[in-house]
Amino acid sequence: MLAYVARRLFFALPTLLAVMTLVFVLVRIVPGDPAQTILGDQASQEAIMALRERLGLNRPLWEQYVDFLQSAITGDWGASMVTGQPVLGEIANVLPYTIDLTVASLILGAVVGIPLGVWSALHRNRLIDYVTRIGSLLGLSFPAFVSAILLLLIFSIYLNWFPVISAGDRSDPLERLENLALPAINLGLIMAAYITRVTRSSMLNVLGEDYIRTAQAKGLPHRSIIWIHALRNALIPVVTVVGLYLGILIGNSVLTEIVFNRPGLGKLIVGALGQRDYTMLQGLMVIYTFIIIIVNLLTDLTYGLIDPRVKYS
């Protein structure tokens, strides 16, 4: 299995290179001059020219490209064009917040979504099922920023249970949880809505399988049939959806991070876009690609945990 992981990562290298090239080109196609943006409208032409020179923006494109690749491989992703801080350092500062948020929403989504989906499937076409299905549809169609604002209003402003600004100290476990709670609930409920729907339909499929009838013919109690025989099979498509959705979730966390004023990759990327921070954007997109590759790999490894028919070769 280690060999499989190593091979997968090795084959991810061309993907990373392609993405880096694409990112390099894309960032330079976007209209707007970073020197102008950094210095503002009032800056003199000389100052702008000097800054362009200093940032290397006057050199030929291919030179910039080779330089970009070389330094990226050696771990030097350059400094932010706006703050002057190393890109990698800035990303490393906020990455833990993003990982916290993603993992917490995933856990919340699974803990709420899987039992709800099973419950809904077992009460197919009865009141519980309808309520769950409508609820999950609402969860899917409700914009994340609206629910975020509602959560803030209720739990932070009226009830005063959680901080309004979720950018506290990560090293203090209690504070870390406090800051995580509302953003994670916000994204977790959307996640739960997805998982509920997939679990329900997958569970309904599995309950019609021959091996469920075999389990019934053995005289097993209902709970063994549901939780041992059916659920494990039903989880296979759920893993697929979670894997796909995790990529989207990392992207979707942008609005949540903004509303809760929480550091994270999403906020960083919006800031970098607004300020034409080429180097920061390059670094962020490569990191995103890397994250997606890792998530896909983890998804494939999870299949192996659930389904013994999956072989890593």
Binding site: E209, Y211, A217, K218, I228, R309
Partner: peptide
């Protein structure tokens, strides 16, 4: 009925390929 099934009366099904649980 659950006490009878698989204990007093058992059943073997037609399709051995699909009648066993693939993940157990």
């Amino acid at each position: 009925m659950r006490e009878v099934r698989g204990d007093g009366i058992s059943m073997v099904f037609q399709e051995p390929m699909t009648s066993l649980n693939p993940v157990l």
